Computed example of a mutant assay.
Amino acid sequence: MRIHPLGRAAAAALAACFAPLAMAALDPVTDRQVGGIFSNTCSDPGQLRIRLYGDTLDIERAGVAVKASTLRSNRKAPTGAPAHPGFAATVRGQAPGGPVELTLTHDATGLFARIDGSAAALAPLGAPAVGQVLRHCDPNRNRLPGTPIPLEAQTVGALLKRPGFPAAYRAALGPLGREGWIASLAGPSPPLRLVEAGGTRYWLGASCKPHDCGDNNMVLLWDEAGRKVHGLLHRSGRQTLFGQPPPAVSRELPRLWAEEWRRR
Rank of each mutant, 00 (worst) to 15 (best):
R49V: 05
G46Y: 03
R72S: 13
V64K: 11
S69M: 06
I59W: 04
K76N: 14
Y53C: 02
I59Y: 01
A81Q: 14
G86T: 05
L57Q: 04
K67R: 15
N40R: 03
N40G: 04
Q47F: 13
T56E: 01
H84K: 15
T90Q: 14
F87N: 09
I59G: 07
T41K: 02
T90F: 15
C42G: 00
A65V: 10
L57R: 01
S43P: 04
T79Q: 11
A81C: 10
D58H: 13
A65S: 15
V66K: 08
A81W: 11
R72V: 10
T41H: 02
T56C: 04
G54L: 10
T79P: 04
R61H: 10
L48H: 01
L57M: 14
L71Q: 14
A88E: 15
R72A: 11
L71H: 11
S69Y: 10
P85S: 04
L52T: 01
N74Y: 14
G86V: 14
A68E: 14
R49L: 07
L57W: 02
G46F: 02
T41F: 06
P85T: 00
R49I: 01
A77N: 07
G80Q: 06
G54Q: 05
L52K: 01
T90E: 14
V66W: 11
G86C: 08
L57N: 01
R51W: 07
A65D: 00
Y53K: 04
S73C: 12
H84D: 07
G46M: 04
G80T: 07
T41N: 01
A88H: 06
G54V: 05
Y53D: 07
A83R: 09
G46H: 07
K67F: 11
G63E: 09
T90N: 13
V66Y: 04
A83K: 12
L71I: 09
